[in-house]
Amino acid sequence: MISQFAPAKVNLTLHAGPVRDDGYHPLDSLVVFADWGDHLAAVASDKLELTLSGEGAEQLEAEGNNLVLRAAEALRKAARLPVFAGAKLHLTKAIPMGAGLGGGSSDAAATLRALNRLWHLDWPLDRLIPVAAEIGSDVPACLHARPLRMTGRGEIIEALKVWPVLDAVLCLPGLQVPTGKVFAAFDTGEPTALPPPGDLPSAKTAKDALAVAAAGRNDLERAAISVEPRIGNVLAALNGAPAARLAGLSGSGSTCWALFDSRAQAKTAAEALAAAHPEWVFKPVRLAGTR
């Protein structure tokens, strides 16, 4: 059996420009990955099968052909494998649907990594990237699963050379915020521009990383709050937590994050926030650094 971790993707910054002629928005985002997420297991079989358990499993099952099966079929086609080259896949979900944490994309990336091994393809990462890009804009970033800068529509990836581990709290308020509605609201607001091209973000210490994140922004935050005003309440709660250094929205929402100076501070804050807001879920996490 091959097992793969599918970590939650967190946008520390997300700059967006006006919609392009092809319908996509140009992006420039600083992305990191948490030590919490979904898990995928794969065993050899003569057909492709997927079972699910955990958070939102019933809803995902009702969808039928989700990103995990799409990733498996895309890799099988790219590798020109016969239809009887298959796998029994089991996905254990922890990341809620619509949480803004790239759960589906991370699951698809985990599928590519698992089947690359199970099917003995042993393709290098750069050969898997085009397959990932066909599945979705976030899948190449999730295939890297390390601190990176994401540009284009999300398919252009630049791995950060130096970035520290960060301690954080994720708040999952359980609010459904459709990405399409957020971008539609964004398009009706004041136009924003991407920052000029520059050097890759770099930080040796958590203090340096905090400064980089604070200098950025999430251009979708205002639009997301207009679609779901309760996101503003979540951000206010995180910003008001003792020892919180910076809070923001991940992607188009609804998950928000706050950075702390230590794991102990993040854990203490998560416990206090959960007591004050039992309707929301708080996860103390570590956001992985470069390796």
Rank of each mutant, 00 (worst) to 15 (best):
G98R: 04
P229T: 08
A99S: 03
P242N: 07
G232M: 12
N66Y: 05
A243V: 04
G154W: 00
K47F: 11
V68H: 01
R127P: 04
V177G: 01
S250A: 09
P229V: 12
G64F: 04
P242M: 07
I135H: 03
A114P: 05
K267M: 13
L75N: 05
E271H: 09
D167N: 14
Q59M: 06
P229D: 07
L273I: 09
H120T: 11
G216F: 00
L220R: 13
A62W: 00
G232H: 11
P191I: 01
G136P: 05
R263T: 14
P196I: 01
G64V: 12
L249H: 14
R127L: 13
K207V: 15
G64A: 02
A159W: 05
A224H: 13
G251Y: 00
S202G: 08
T51C: 11
L160R: 06
N11Q: 00
F84H: 14
N116G: 04
Q4H: 08
I225R: 07
V212C: 12
A42G: 04
G56W: 02
A94Q: 13
A114I: 11
C256T: 14
H15F: 09
D199A: 15
G103L: 00
E228V: 14
L48W: 07
D138V: 02
H277E: 02
A244N: 07
G103M: 06
A264M: 13
S106E: 09
I156W: 13
R245H: 14
E61T: 10
A62E: 08
K161P: 00
V234Q: 06
T179G: 08
K181M: 08
L112Q: 08
Y24L: 11
Q4E: 15
E55V: 06
A74P: 01
S250C: 06
W36Y: 07
A57Y: 02
P96S: 10
L143T: 01
V281K: 07
G136D: 06
S105D: 00
P147K: 05
A141D: 10
G289S: 09
F183R: 09
A34I: 04
G180P: 10
R20V: 02
R20D: 03
V227L: 04
G174S: 07
A272T: 03
N116R: 04
E279I: 09
L273F: 10
A269M: 12
R153V: 00
K93W: 09
A247R: 07
K88T: 14
E49L: 07
K267H: 04
V32F: 03
R286W: 00
P130L: 05
W163K: 14
L81W: 02
K267P: 02
L194D: 01
M1E: 07
A57D: 03
T13A: 06
G189A: 13
L210E: 11
Q4M: 14
T290G: 11
T92F: 10
A185V: 03
Y24S: 11
G37N: 03
G100W: 00
R286N: 10
P96W: 03
T255V: 14
